[in-house]
Computed example of a mutant assay.
Amino acid sequence: MKLNLSLQQNFQSPELVVKRAHIKKVVETALRHIETQSDCEIGIACVDNDESHKLNLEYRGKDKPTNVLSFPSDLPDEMAAILDSFPIGDLVICIPMVLREASEQNKAALTHFTHMLVHGTLHLMGYDHETSDEDAEEMEALEIEILAKLGFDNPYLERD
């Protein structure tokens, strides 16, 4: 599996400097963990609170910014079969929200950003945590496993 990554860093912060290589490694690790075989394309945009708020309101009807938004590709399976590289979709990560949550949860900013990247990638691949407790448990277990492969602790453990 090969990953083609399109990255837009519309918002950057000195508290969270993330290299393209890290993002690519995280997404590739997540996709391999769920046994994605085909070459993939993903778009990732790092945005501010205003952009996240606008998109969250427009696409989810929620009048506030959010940490990560996932926009899965809606290509039919038969189209995917003829493409060299399958577009799995786009992620929009709100950097100020990730920084705030990391601080509130006593986590390093890179740790929380990495978790949101894994979380969003799983959403793009059809995983959901809002429809049932069983689905949420499955998604959380995958996140824990993927993050462990990357050398990160369980993000759902309480921090002091």
Rank of each mutant, 00 (worst) to 15 (best):
I23C: 05
E78D: 13
L31C: 13
L3T: 06
Q8H: 09
A81G: 08
V18E: 05
S6C: 01
D63A: 09
L91V: 15
M125P: 01
M79T: 05
L55S: 13
A45E: 14
D63S: 12
P96T: 09
A109D: 14
P76C: 13
L122G: 09
E78H: 14
F11E: 01
C94K: 07
E137Y: 10
M79K: 07
T29A: 14
M79V: 05
I144K: 07
E140D: 14
T111P: 07
E15T: 03
L57W: 15
G61Q: 10
Y127R: 08
D128R: 04
A102P: 01
T121L: 05
G89I: 05
K54M: 13
E41A: 12
F113G: 00
V47A: 04
A81M: 06
V98Y: 07
I34Q: 01
R20D: 11
D50N: 08
K62A: 13
V68H: 09
E51S: 04
R60S: 13
A81E: 15
L57E: 13
L31W: 03
E143Q: 08
S103W: 11
G120V: 06
D135W: 04
A136M: 15
F71L: 14
L3N: 14
D50L: 08
I82M: 14
E145K: 12
L69V: 02
N56K: 01
N56Y: 08
N154T: 02
Q37D: 03
F152V: 00
V27E: 08
L117Q: 00
I82P: 03
A102H: 13
V17W: 02
M97Y: 05
C40G: 00
G151A: 06
K54E: 13
A21C: 03
H115R: 15
L3H: 01
F71G: 04
S52I: 04
L75Y: 04
A102S: 14
T121N: 06
E143R: 12
H22F: 09
V18R: 00
L5C: 01
L57Y: 12
K54I: 06
C46Y: 15
Q105L: 15
